[in-house]
Simulated scan of single mutants.
Amino acid sequence: MAHRLRSESLGFARVAPVRLVFTAEVSAPPDVVYRALADDVEGWPAWFTAVTAAVPVEAGAGREVRLRGGITFRETVIATEPGERYAYRVDTTNAPGMKALVEEWRLTPAGTGTQVRWTFAADGSPLFRFVLRRARRAVGRSFRDAVRDLGRRLAAAPA
Rank of each mutant, 00 (worst) to 15 (best):
F73R: 01
A2G: 00
R134C: 02
P56W: 05
P45T: 02
W105D: 10
L10V: 12
A2R: 13
V116K: 04
G140C: 00
A100R: 09
W105L: 02
I71L: 13
P17G: 09
R19F: 05
V116N: 04
T23M: 00
H3Q: 08
T80L: 07
A110S: 13
A121S: 11
R136P: 01
V51G: 07
P30G: 07
V102K: 11
S9E: 08
R74S: 15
A2T: 03
T80D: 09
P158S: 12
R141G: 10
R148Y: 11
E58M: 05
T93N: 10
P30Q: 12
D39C: 13
K99T: 11
P30N: 12
A24H: 09
A61Q: 12
R152N: 11
G60M: 09
V102E: 00
F73P: 00
P109W: 02
A50T: 07
T108E: 15
P109M: 02
V116D: 10
G151H: 05
A2L: 15
G62A: 12
E42T: 01
A46W: 09
R4E: 12
P56Y: 00
E75Q: 08
F73L: 07
H3V: 02
A122G: 02
L10G: 09
A122N: 10
A50S: 09
L150D: 08
A157C: 12
R153E: 08
R152C: 03
T52Q: 11
P17A: 06
R35S: 12
V21C: 14
